Computed example of a mutant assay.
Amino acid sequence: MSGRGTPSVRLVEGSGIALRVAGLVVWFARPEGADLEELVQGLVVAAQKTPGQVPVDHLATLAGEIPGLSLAAVAVGTDFGRAWVCGGARVTLAGVAEREIAATGAAPDSTYFPLPRSGLRLGGTAEAAGWSHLVEGAVPAAGIEVVWKPAAVVPGVDSSSPAPGPTSAAESGKASGAGSPSRRTPGFESVSLVNVQAPLAAAPLPVGSGATVDDAVVVAGLRCAQGHFNHPHAAHCAWCGIGMAQVSHVLVREPRPAVGVLILDAQATFTLDADYVLGRDPRVRSEVDGIRVRELVLGPDRSISRAHVAIRLRDWDVLVEDLTSAMGTWVQQPGQGPFQIPPGQPLALAPGGVVFVGPHRLTFHSHFLT
Rank of each mutant, 00 (worst) to 15 (best):
V74G: 14
H367D: 13
R292P: 00
P343V: 02
I101Q: 07
A46C: 06
V207K: 06
P343I: 05
L69A: 12
W84A: 12
A245F: 04
P343D: 11
H249W: 02
C237S: 02
A326H: 08
V146A: 11
G353C: 05
Q226R: 14
T271I: 03
V259A: 08
D289W: 01
A235N: 09
V261K: 07
G328E: 14
A129W: 08
I66C: 06
V157G: 09
V157M: 14
L205G: 07
T370I: 13
I144N: 10
V153G: 11
G173M: 12
S182R: 15
P114Q: 10
H133N: 03
G177N: 11
L369K: 03
A151E: 05
G165Q: 13
W84V: 08
V357D: 03
P342T: 03
E127R: 15
A234Q: 01
L319E: 07
L115P: 06
W330K: 15
T269W: 01
A103V: 06
R306C: 00
R90C: 06
G130P: 14
V213E: 14
S180Y: 09
I291A: 12
G81A: 12
W27H: 15
L122Y: 09
A258M: 09
I66K: 10
L122P: 10
D214Q: 10
E98L: 06
A220V: 00
G177K: 10
R253I: 00
G130R: 04
P162N: 11
G137T: 04
L264D: 05
R285W: 06
R183A: 03
A175D: 14
R223Y: 12
V194M: 05
V139Q: 05
R184H: 15
R314K: 09
A22W: 12
A75S: 15
G344D: 07
R256A: 02
I304R: 09
D109H: 09
E127L: 15
A198I: 03
D322T: 05
L347P: 01
P31Q: 01
V207Q: 08
A138R: 05
S366V: 04
G208N: 11
T78G: 10
